[in-house]
Design a protein around this nucleic acid. Structure first.
Lengths: 149, 149
DNA sequence: GTAAAATAATACGTAACACAAACTAATGTC
DNA sequence: GACATTAGTTTGTGTTACGTATTATTTTAC
């Protein structure tokens, strides 16, 4: 009977929690002087050196957007464009030393912010949360086509 | 046990879920031809006719950002600026008929997208999820009231 | 082997959004 | 009435995002 109300409440709490997490991410990025998108990009680059195309796909951006994004990061010395020998049209984006360091710092700050947020939860609730969220179905399984190349 | 690993996994799953929810919100907004911020604003206006200042606070925006936001929405006929008689400096922002309709549609689409996302969860898991997320503490209930500059 | 199509990345133009600072107008206070 | 305060807008800068066009390099077709 309360199904309706429960569903609405769940939507409410989900969007609210999502917004809170998003704010934590934004804050962590801002704390280190980069934009949210920059932070997302840095984090994505931590494991791999994708091409512009792959990076854009990974971040859900247009190629032109990614281009500008990398431009700005490069000016700051956070990333490097490494021309690919296999395909001379192609460029691989890599974190520089400072870039890698910054990425690690931001990720760690995010983790600590979220940890603070999770403090009021009991251990059982945490695992229930993890289990529930982990089960949320993947909408775009094909999207993350392993670059392989 | 494996507290460390569990914590890391939880951070991971939280950020991922948050991103998914955010994408659902963005998609729902885009589907109806408005930006995510516009959608958030429309939804916020569904219950009340706040002043610009209040609205800005509610959305976590600067006054100037809210001003432009409302400008654009007004051009589209989604909201109206109603001058306050009590305080002639003040303006109340109200949804128009079409604006209210659009807000309802977007909210309903969001609900349905999230419902789809939650489908794989058992009833018990849903309530556990709601309970856990609901407990995440609200950091900004009264914390940062007015930037005020 | 060369011409045509496809691909990777960039350049350019446009627009939404966000912020800060300066400005206007109306309230309040003394 | 002078003066600070408040509400909102305006102006300027920067980031991000998109679409389109362009350039350079494959890849394919003939």
């Amino acid at each position: 009977m309360t199904n309706e109300a429960d569903a609405a409440a769940l939507v409410e709490v989900l969007t609210r929690a999502s917004a809170r997490i998003q704010r934590a991410l934004d804050r962590s990025a801002a704390e280190h002087g980069v934009s949210p998108t920059q932070a997302r990009m840095l984090s994505a680059l931590r494991d791999g050196a994708p091409t512009m195309n792959e990076l854009a796909g990974q971040l859900g951006l247009d190629k032109s957007s990614a281009s500008g994004l990398i431009d700005r990061a490069q000016v700051r010395g956070l990333v490097r464009r490494v021309p690919s020998q296999r395909d001379r049209r192609s460029v691989r984006v890599r974190l520089t030393g400072p870039g890698r360091e910054l990425a690690a710092e931001i990720d760690s700050l995010v983790a600590s912010e979220l940890a603070t947020m999770l403090e009021p939860l009991a251990t059982g609730q945490r695992s229930a949360l993890a289990s529930a969220l982990g089960q949320l179905s993947a909408p775009d399984q094909s999207a993350c086509a392993r670059p392989g190349s």
